Lab assay of single mutants.
Amino acid sequence: MQIFVKTLTGKTITLEVEPSDTIENVKAKIQDKEGIPPDQQRLIFNGKQLEDGRTLSDYNIQKDSTLHLVLR
């Protein structure tokens, strides 16, 4: 499925993911596309910070959902 990740600069990254993917996996995909190390990434969905060990389906993230990427 496709999800979107919006950065603070207003750029939107499109990712191909599975609901069973962990947040860690998603961060690795963002690193592949953008070169941002996962330990600098914080992903936010519906105002909640997403934890590495959880999956997209844990957070009820579905296709065409938009996550927000904050760098630390």
Rank of each mutant, 00 (worst) to 15 (best):
R42A: 14
E18R: 11
I36D: 05
T12Q: 12
K48I: 15
V5P: 00
D52V: 08
G10I: 03
R72N: 05
Q40T: 04
K11P: 09
A28T: 12
T9S: 06
F4H: 07
T66M: 05
T22M: 09
P37Q: 13
N46Y: 06
Q49S: 06
K48F: 12
K27A: 02
I3K: 00
Q31K: 06
R54K: 06
M1N: 08
G35M: 08
K48P: 02
L8S: 08
Q31Y: 13
I36A: 05
D64L: 04
L43P: 01
K27G: 01
P38V: 14
K27P: 00
M1Q: 08
A28N: 03
R54H: 10
K11T: 12
Q40N: 13
R72M: 14
S65Q: 03
L56Y: 01
Q31E: 13
L50V: 05
D39P: 04
K29E: 09
T7A: 15
M1P: 02
D64Q: 05
T22E: 14
E24N: 15
N60P: 05
T55A: 08
H68N: 05
T55H: 12
N46E: 14
Q62K: 06
T7E: 08
T66N: 06
Y59H: 11
G10V: 07
I36H: 12
K48V: 03
E18A: 05
V5A: 06
D39R: 15
K27S: 02
I23S: 10
E51W: 03
L71S: 13
L8N: 04
G10H: 07
I3D: 00
L69V: 03
N60T: 15
S65M: 09
K29N: 08
L56A: 02
K63N: 13
Q41A: 08
F4E: 11
Q31A: 14
E51Y: 06
G47D: 12
H68Y: 07
R42H: 15
V26Q: 00
L50Y: 01
K48E: 12
L8M: 09
L69G: 01
Y59P: 00
R42I: 15
Q41N: 07
M1V: 12
T22L: 13
F45G: 08
K29S: 15
E51R: 05
P19A: 05
T9N: 06
A28F: 15
G10Y: 03
F4P: 02
L50M: 09
T55V: 12
L15T: 01
K11W: 08
G35H: 02
N46F: 04
G53P: 11
E24K: 02
L15N: 00
H68F: 03
I30Q: 00
K33F: 14
E16L: 11
I13H: 08
T12F: 11
R72T: 14
I61E: 00
H68V: 02
D58Y: 07
M1R: 08
V70K: 03
K11H: 14
T9Y: 02
R42V: 08
A28D: 04
P38W: 06
M1L: 14
S57H: 05
P19W: 07
L15G: 00
T7D: 07
K27E: 02
S65A: 07
V70I: 15
R72P: 07
T12G: 11
H68T: 02
Q31F: 06
Y59R: 01
T9D: 11
R72V: 13
P38G: 14
K33Y: 14
S20R: 12
D32P: 02
V70S: 04
G35Q: 06
I61N: 00
G10E: 09
R42E: 13
A28Q: 07
D52S: 05
E24I: 12
I44F: 14
E18P: 13
I30Y: 10
